[in-house]
Amino acid sequence: MESAIPLHLETTRMRHKRVPDDYQPPYPSFVARYKPAVSRVVMAYFGVQYRGAAPSSALEALEDIAGMFASEGGPSHWDRARYVDQAGYDTTVTVAYWDDVARFDAWFAPTREAWTGRSRDGVGTFIEVLRPTVARHETLFSSPDRPEGVAVVAEGMSGEVQEHAYWGGMRDRIPLSQTDAMAPGGAPELIRDGARLRVKAHDNLCLIRSGQDWSDTEASERKLYLDNVEPVLREGMDFLRDDGLAIGCYTNRYMKVLAADGSVSEKSYGQSWWKSLAALERWAESHPTHVRIFGAAMKYLSALGPSAKLRLYHEVTVAAADEQLFEYLNCHPKTGMLAAVVTVTA
């Protein structure tokens, strides 16, 4: 049994784990392992939104960003997903990952100007970027043989890890949690730059991407998931989208992953920005919507046991203030982190 925290990031604990050292989890889970030389990763979300029929400019934007990804310094991995947001805007989000910040920085400067520096007819565009140290980040996978998201740029997967299947495991997998409570500081502010709107968030902002992959399931298991688990998951995701602000969730997107040809795959993920890791933990541990998600998932997994072919994963980051960038052009006022803004700076 391995620790989720890699050896080179282990330190003397000032804050104790939620379980004793001899804790044995009831089922296996795995985490991504980066090369020790990797000190930071980058996760960059490029969004395009529109209402009604898709204008040609939306398709052109998606082709443009894919072309930029293929250029010098582009990401090691990217994927694309789609959803309709709380204001009824069809939104496609392309998320890209790097394990080399210098490469990203050189690539990003012209890309940023092309994406949010010029208007496109009938669409809004946005960029949301985190570039955390690996000490501020964790992943978890139910299976070690199909990485998703940021784990694709990692060197590989761990063996079975100890810190999972209990409340608090998410925090215990983040190396910084050994010494830091990661409490939030400050409030989001809006900075106007002509037509561009930037959000300056705050220290220890939390991001989670939590995914589901039912592409390997056979007919009976697929039906069980889609009829009994997915509707409960969607209810919880809709709650966070529409009413999450009151409990510390700034914004939530529940998206269907798109295949390479643009069709909808049998994968989905929820992606949300939280005021703090603690707020995310409170929702997960005690809010009725997540209690129902957890109950439906446990019933499903208990019924199927080791034969279950549903794959689950997540990645969680608690980012320092200087590791964040949020930028929006011609987007509606509740898009992404714009929904969190309470102070306007000229």
Results as ranks from 00 to 15, higher is better:
Ala66Val: 08
Val93Gly: 00
Arg292Ala: 15
Asp243Lys: 15
Gly211Val: 05
Pro288Tyr: 06
Val95Tyr: 02
Arg222Phe: 13
Val93Arg: 00
Arg146Trp: 13
Ser143Gly: 10
Tyr313Ala: 02
Lys256Cys: 10
Ala114Pro: 11
Pro6Asn: 09
Gly236Ser: 06
Trp98Val: 01
Ser272Val: 06
Arg192Thr: 09
Asp99His: 07
Gly236Trp: 02
Glu285Leu: 14
Arg173Leu: 10
Lys17Phe: 13
Arg234Ser: 13
Thr317Gly: 07
Asn204Ser: 11
Trp274Tyr: 04
Met43Arg: 05
Pro231Gly: 06
Ala154Met: 08
Trp98Gly: 01
Pro75Lys: 02
Trp214Phe: 08
Leu310Thr: 04
Asp90Asn: 12
Gly47Val: 06
Leu240Asn: 02
Ser286Glu: 15
Leu329Gln: 00
Glu230Ser: 12
Ile247Phe: 06
Leu325Val: 09
Leu226Thr: 13
Val199Phe: 01
Gly236Ala: 14
Arg118Tyr: 12
Met157Phe: 06
Asp105Ser: 13
Ile191Thr: 03
Val199Ser: 00
Ala53Thr: 14
Trp214Val: 01
Glu2Leu: 05
Asp242Arg: 09
Trp283Tyr: 15
Pro26Ser: 15
Val123Thr: 03
Ala44Tyr: 03
Val316His: 01
Pro25Ala: 09
Thr317Ile: 06
Ala109Phe: 11
His77Thr: 08
Pro132Gly: 03
Leu329Arg: 06
Leu245Ile: 13
Ala181Cys: 11
Leu140Ser: 01
Leu325Trp: 10
Leu205Gly: 02
Ala87Tyr: 05
Pro288Gly: 04
Thr12Tyr: 09
Gly124Tyr: 00
Arg33Glu: 05
Asn252Phe: 01
Leu7Arg: 15
Trp98Phe: 03
Tyr300Asp: 10
Val342Pro: 02
His287Ile: 05
Gly52Asn: 10
Met170Asn: 03
Gln324Asp: 04
Gly248Trp: 00
Val42Met: 03
Trp78Arg: 10
Leu312Trp: 02
Ser265Asn: 12
Leu312Val: 11
Phe108Arg: 07
Ala37Ser: 12
Gly270Trp: 07
Phe108Gln: 04
Glu281Asp: 14
Arg13Phe: 12
Ala201Lys: 00
Val31Asn: 04
Asp193Ser: 12
Val42Glu: 01
Phe326Asp: 00
Pro333Asp: 05
Gly156Gln: 03
Trp78Pro: 08
Gly73Asn: 06
Leu190Tyr: 07
Ile191Val: 14
Thr91Val: 02
Ile293Leu: 08
Tyr97Glu: 00
Val316Lys: 00
Pro36Lys: 11
Asp203His: 08
Tyr34Lys: 05
Phe141Trp: 02
Met170Ser: 09
Gly270Pro: 04
Gly295Arg: 09
Ala195Ser: 11
Ala346Cys: 11
Phe326Ser: 00
Ser76Gln: 14
Ala296Thr: 04
Glu2Ala: 03
